[in-house]
Amino acid sequence: MTTFLTKLTMDFFIAFGIVLGGSMLGGMAAVFILQPPAVYMLKIAENIKIWAMVAAVGGTIDPLRVIEFNFTEGYLSPAIKQILYFIVAFIGAQMAYHLIQWICEGSGSS
């Protein structure tokens, strides 16, 4: 049970960190090229969410194969665990996206 909770926590923070870090660094790059950073940060945060989820759960198609194989073989517990990993990674990416939106609100670009 602790390895399951550990992986859930790691997936959440990995997805959160990818969106937050990628957006913040993209905002810095926008400053260097004399563009409005808030606009770029929002675009990057929106576009990177799906990739943050994929990276958090394993980075390949294998997690989906695990769900398919276990579900078709009747082993629901591993399939449900894998689905929960996706859900938690989605929540982490979405929370980071909303944090970026909140940060960019004050800049007048929203």
Rank of each mutant, 00 (worst) to 15 (best):
Ile48Lys: 04
Ile87Lys: 08
Leu5Ile: 14
Leu5Lys: 11
Gly26Asp: 04
Ser23Ile: 04
Gly59Tyr: 00
Phe4Trp: 15
Leu64Tyr: 08
Leu34Val: 15
Glu68Thr: 14
Tyr75Pro: 03
Leu25Ser: 09
Phe69Glu: 15
Ile80Trp: 12
Val88Glu: 06
Glu46Asn: 13
Phe12Val: 04
Gln101Ile: 08
Ala29Pro: 03
Val54Arg: 02
Ile48Tyr: 04
Ile50His: 10
His98Cys: 10
Ile103Leu: 05
Trp102Glu: 13
Ile100Glu: 01
Ala45Pro: 07
Ser107Arg: 06
Thr6Ala: 09
Phe69Cys: 13
Phe16Val: 00
Glu73Tyr: 13
Ser107Asn: 09
Phe86Glu: 03
Ile48Leu: 02
Leu99Arg: 00
Gly74Thr: 02
Leu8Trp: 05
Val31Lys: 13
Ser110Val: 11
Thr2Val: 13
Lys43Ile: 15
Phe71Thr: 14
Phe16Arg: 07
Asp11Glu: 07
Thr6Ile: 12
Thr2His: 13
Val19Leu: 00
Gly26Asn: 05
Gly106Asn: 05
Pro63Ser: 02
Gly74Ser: 01
Glu46Met: 08
Ala79Ser: 11
Ser23Asn: 06
Ser109Thr: 10
Phe71His: 12
Val54Thr: 08
Ala93Val: 10
Ala15Gln: 03
Gly17Asp: 01
Thr9Trp: 07
Gly22Trp: 05
Phe4Ala: 10
Met53Leu: 09
Met53Pro: 02
Ile83Thr: 11
Phe90Cys: 08
Gly92Asp: 06
Ile33Tyr: 05
Ala15His: 07
Ile48Cys: 06
Ala55Glu: 01
Val57Asp: 01
Phe4Leu: 15
Gly59Lys: 01
Gly92Asn: 01
Gly17His: 04
Ser107Asp: 12
Met1Lys: 12
Thr9Cys: 09
Ser23Met: 02
Lys81Gly: 14
Leu20His: 01
Phe32Cys: 07
Leu42Trp: 04
Lys7Asp: 13
Ala56Gly: 09
Ser77Ile: 12
Val66Trp: 03
Gly17Cys: 02
Ala79Gly: 11
Ala93Tyr: 07
Trp51Tyr: 14
Gly22Gln: 03
Met1Ala: 15
Ile18Leu: 11
Ala96Pro: 02
Gly74Gln: 07
Pro36Cys: 06
Leu99Asp: 06
Gly22Pro: 03
Leu84Gln: 01
Gln35Asp: 08
Ala30Gln: 05
Lys7Thr: 11
Leu20Tyr: 07
Leu76Val: 11
